[in-house]
C-alpha cells in the first residue's frame, strides 16, 4: 500500500531518541512509522518490541522504567483506545510515559473506520492525563518530541506527540488498484 510519507522527519526523530537515551521502543506498526521502526530496529542500543495490542506497550514501558530504561510507544491513533485502562498504571504510579502517534481519520482519510478513534484521540488522551502535543509541520516533529521526552522523563509526566495525517501523508488506497 503506497503512502506519500513526508521525507526527513523520521531521521530527526530517531536522532532525538538516541540523544535522549531511549532504550526501549515498543510498537504496533503504522505505515507512517515504518522508517523510524527500521532505524530503531537497526540500532543495537535500542530494544524494539512488536506488540499484539497497544496496551501491552503501556505496561511494557512501565516495567522498562522500573528497570531503568527510558522507552517510547509508537502507534497510530486507532491504538489509543486500546490503551485507556492501562494508562491508569501510569497515572497511579506517576510514571513517565511517552508515545508518538501517527494520526488517521483526518486530512482526506479514505477509510471511514479510522475516523471515530482519530477524532477522539486528543480527548481520550487528555482525559487520562496525558499531555497532547500536535505536530502539523514536519520540521516541528523532532523538537516537539524532544520537549515531550524531557518533560516526561525529567518532569515525570505523560506525553503524547500526534503527527498529523497531513504531515505523514494520506494513505493512497487507489494506487494499489
Amino acid at each position: 500500500m503506497k503512502t506519500s510519507v513526508a521525507q526527513g522527519w523520521p531521521g530527526g526523530v530517531y536522532d532525538v531518541l538516541v540523544r535522549q537515551n531511549i532504550r526501549q521502543v515498543a510498537y504496533v506498526p503504522d505505515a507512517g512509522h515504518s522508517d523510524l521502526i527500521e532505524r530503531c530496529s537497526a540500532d543495537p542500543a535500542m530494544k524494539t518490541t512488536v506488540l499484539t495490542t497497544e496496551e501491552e506497550g503501556v505496561a511494557l514501558l512501565a516495567g522498562a522504567w522500573l528497570g531503568g530504561d527510558r522507552g517510547i510507544l509508537l502507534m497510530q491513533s486507532s491504538g489509543v483506545g486500546n490503551c485507556v485502562n492501562m494508562l491508569s498504571l501510569i497515572e497511579n504510579c506517576r510514571m513517565p510515559f511517552v508515545t508518538l502517534i501517527t494520526m488517521r481519520g483526518e486530512w482526506g482519510e479514505f477509510n471511514p473506520w479510522q475516523a471515530p478513534m482519530g477524532l477522539a484521540t486528543p480527548d481520550v488522551l487528555s482525559r487520562m492525563n496525558v499531555q497532547v502535543h500536535r505536530v502539523d509541520v514536519a520540521t516541528d516533529a523532532a523538537p516537539t518530541l524532544d520537549a515531550a521526552i524531557s518533560q516526561s522523563y525529567d518532569g515525570l509526566l505523560s506525553s503524547a506527540v500526534l503527527l498529523s495525517q497531513r504531515l505523514i501523508g494520506r494513505k493512497d488506497f487507489e494506487a494499489e488498484g
Binding site: L60, A64, G67, D69, L89
Partner: peptide, 11 residues
C-alpha cells in the same frame, strides 16, 4: 506479563 517483559529487557 507485558510489564514484566519491559522489566526483564531493562534488567
Amino acid at each position: 506479563a507485558a510489564m514484566a517483559l519491559g522489566l526483564a529487557l531493562a534488567q
